[in-house]
Write a protein that binds this DNA or RNA. Structure first.
Lengths: 341, 341
DNA sequence: CTGAAAGCGCTAACAT
DNA sequence: ATGTTAGCGCTTTCAG
């Protein structure tokens, strides 16, 4: 409570001394009481309790022991999507006694590279990363990491090691197919800062490719240079409808946040959904489904992605980290037939 | 990519050798190029780049260097509330180059204690914890931590070191005052597993205390033994209305998730809000405000709590961790005048 | 500004 | 089942 130099924490050697055994025996007793006589284990544990001994994993890991830390690099935490992924990661890591060490790249490749260095400098047991246009230096770091690495969110990539996610190209394509089937003709797209969010761009590419294969095309595209948000989507739709030569009959938004904004604009302008205008999003967020008319969108298994990624790391750690051929896990997406398209 | 024993990573001494300086000089050059001649700094940096040297902070921290890891213990990530707090923490930690090391207690005091031990064994620079009925062992551990500790969410506590949050007692009391003022007479409460969620219980206490001070009381209370959710709130209200001798005219829910469920029940049963029944929640979640009739609730500054907590840790680290008197930061709450009460 | 010595606290490897 | 030896890779003193 008061000032003064911090009293040194009790060390293993002190525990050993009190228990009347060697340091290494104390170490074994504390880590895996099975590798030691019951009596010894008890003595050591008592000594440790008496001293208030607290294991120092810095020393342990430096000496070659295992780490239970896993680096986790995500682009943002403002977006519920990544909070969901983190939840999924925690689900499995927590049970296995592993702890995520978090870094947020803010969609910035330079920052991401710095984070990779930073987290690797703690010699974690593994690394999970949702890449943001990774630099080649980043890829090189990951390739030579020496521990399992999982790139998450997108499987339309050439993974450094393993990857878990969905095909964003496929998701865009499927939505295009659905909308074409519904008979829509005048397609528009409203997106957020797509330069940074590569996965949104990939969806758009899948979307337009499918339109074109069907002899259709985007009649209007609006890309706003800001992070996605409900407000941005709302203003975006207002702007698009104001500026477009001919009103679209359906708008594909870069994600659900944006799309919900679009729905709100329609509500306030008395544009009836989906007759006057149809709207589609991506992610399958709860808020979209809680709307009076649930949003038509693509459900992405975000929690699942986290769980699978954690599972992949843990599995490899159990297998002694013998890197097999690069592995790709597609958790799949689902078309959510809402009422807006 | 292929098997084989992992090649040892380059060490500082190798960098030093190539640069033609001593190990310690190389160390200084890499950490703080200002404490060394420009030329030396350049030579060392080149050598490091050439070797692909990656700092080993395990060794650094063990040798007495600073850590940039901060333990963060939260009860859950399923609840958006804690994702928001984590976002706030990241906002400041990321900029300062610090990384949260995450543990999820699942509202379990035993698990929380294990997590505290586990995270402390990495000798972090600080610890942020949203306590869950902490055991006395947990409190003892935190008290002797030797680094800054912030207990978050609630300021109605006696903090081990510092705390950041709001008064949950006050929040409950204010909502009671508001509802009394509105003229409601028959008050009911619907809560989730309150044994585990102490803060919800504290709000309830503030609520009932205020009712009683005004000569009123809760006419019905329903506490469900499960984590809070929209579905639980919906079923809860159905049950309460079914079983209550006399229908309440207002229901205070343990939080917004629950309250939104209540609103959904009313929608499907054509119970008009707030005339036939009024509803109030807690948190000010986006989903509650996105409802056709926005939810009357208490806004909690969750992101702010995270930011302030991170700020408090960083400040103390800058001040050389000279623990001043225990500090308590109240970020305050706001009554959200929605349309449901 | 640079260096030499010493050691942080622990665990793997090899005995016994 | 337990102990001995050695060293992980770095940084903190303390000197120059």
């Amino acid at each position: 409570m008061q000032g003064g130099k911090p009293p040194r924490k009790p060390t293993l050697s002190q525990v050993a001394q009190i228990a009347g055994v060697s340091e290494i025996t104390a170490s074994r007793a504390l880590r895996d009481s099975a590798s030691v006589t019951q009596g010894t284990a008890r003595k050591v544990q008592e000594a440790a309790a008496q001293l208030g001994y607290l294991r120092n994993r810095l020393a342990g890991a430096l000496a070659g022991g295992p780490s239970n830390q896993v680096g986790v690099i995500l682009p943002s935490l403002a977006n519920i999507v990544f909070a969901d992924v983190l939840k999924g990661l925690e689900d499995h890591f927590e049970d296995a006694g592993f702890h995520p060490v978090l870094g947020i790249s803010n969609y910035d490749p330079q920052r991401e590279e710095r984070l990779i260095r930073d987290l690797m400098s703690w010699r974690p047991a593994g690394l999970v990363i949702a890449p943001s246009n990774s630099t080649s230096a980043s890829r090189k770091l990951l390739a030579g990491a020496g521990f399992p690495v999982v790139e998450i969110m997108d499987v339309d990539i050439d993974p450094v090691d393993m990857c878990v996610g969905i095909s964003h190209h496929g998701a865009g394509a499927e939505m295009a197919r659905h909308l074409i089937e519904r008979g829509y003709k005048r397609f528009a797209y409203i997106g957020h800062d797509i330069v940074r969010d590569q996965r949104a761009l990939t969806r758009l590419n899948g979307f337009t490719a499918t339109l074109e294969a069907a002899g259709q095309s985007l009649s209007a595209t609006l890309t706003l240079d800001a992070p996605s948000s409900v407000t941005l989507g709302r203003n975006g739709l207002a702007q698009l409808l104001r500026e477009a030569d001919q009103a679209p009959d359906v708008v594909y938004f870069s994600n659900d946040d944006m799309a919900v904004g679009g729905v709100f604009h329609c509500m306030s302008e008395n544009i009836s959904l989906p007759d006057q205008l149809a709207i589609a999003g991506f992610n399958g967020l709860e808020i979209g489904q809680a709307l009076p008319v649930p949003l038509t969108t693509t459900g992405s298994n975000r929690v699942r992605i986290g769980q699978k990624a954690a599972g992949a790391i843990l599995q490899r750690l159990k297998d002694g980290n013998t890197a097999p051929a690069a592995q790709s896990i597609d958790v799949g997406f689902t078309l959510v037939h809402g009422g807006t398209a």
